[in-house]
Design a binder for these strands. Structure first.
Ligand SMILES: [Zn+2]
Ligand SMILES: [Zn+2]
Ligand SMILES: [Zn+2]
Ligand SMILES: [Zn+2]
Lengths: 131, 131
DNA sequence: GAACAAATGTTATGACATTACATATCCTTG
DNA sequence: CAAGGATATGTAATGTCATAACATTTGTTC
């Protein structure tokens, strides 16, 4: 199925997987200087491919990227993200009812959805910050 | 209720209302040069206040801003946006079921939501492009 | 191995957003 | 009214995110 990754794609994927939290393209670049990467485009091109493959998600409200938590699991699903503003952790989930409701709205309004973004910003349970 | 707008806030609001589509902060700035605005910050500060007041929404997937279609109507609602990638038009809607499902997920995971983004990108009915 | 597609390298530039600091305006209250 | 505080403004500089354009290399197919 998913073809082997190229060198740059593998480097970017490894960086994101190891981070455990979203990273900006430029942060990824900084962490890969020693591996020979020098220009933003090298990272953006790898991110584009990885996103197409479903291995990486772009978080629109953060302008950042995160490794998929369930690779190859939810190819066609509508994915929602819960993003902790305190620790940076991201949880992915799907909800068929939400998907059905949004699909229904689109159908009723003759809107042809291409991509849907659902992102919840807030504080995760583990982060009950000592006020 | 919503206090009077300051000069800069009124200028930005008028520009956004008249546009009928989302505008970037820099586009707004360009359209207000003749009114004396010169720096991005003047626009961003006005946008911040207008957003707080609920008169303007930020579209995360576009890095742009749009005048609220139903001012003072949905103060506390979860708002979803359907954004046409062809004509730029944005439709706002609320769905209580979607809100309940997302609230339920958050409750179950002890996630304290601060702000939720729902944006559907696609093509609106009016835009059935001549292929 | 010629031809084509895909990936890479590099420079420059464009687009979006904030920091830092100075000044002005409004509004309260003694 | 003067003093003080809160809010709004003006301005320059800088930081952050993303793509255009072009040259080169690598891999695949016939
Ligand atoms: Zn995923
Ligand atoms: Zn957290
Ligand atoms: Zn609205
Ligand atoms: Zn349209």
């Amino acid at each position: 199925m998913s073809a082997d990754l190229t060198r740059n794609q593998a480097l970017v994927m490894k960086t994101l997987s190891g981070a455990g939290a979203p990273l900006s393209a430029y942060t990824i670049l900084d962490r890969l200087r020693d591996d020979g990467l020098r220009a933003p485009l090298q990272v953006y091109r790898a991110l584009d491919k990885l996103t197409e493959m479903g291995l990486v998600h772009r978080l629109e409200s953060l302008n950042a990227f995160v490794a998929c938590a369930h690779p190859n699991c939810h190819e066609q699903e509508l994915i929602a993200f819960a993003i902790c503003e305190n620790c940076g952790k991201v949880e992915e989930f799907s909800d068929q009812v939400v998907k059905d409701r949004l699909d229904g709205w689109a159908r009723n309004h003759r809107f042809k959805a291409a991509k849907t973004t659902i992102e919840i910003r807030g504080d995760c349970g583990r982060c009950e910050v000592k006020s």
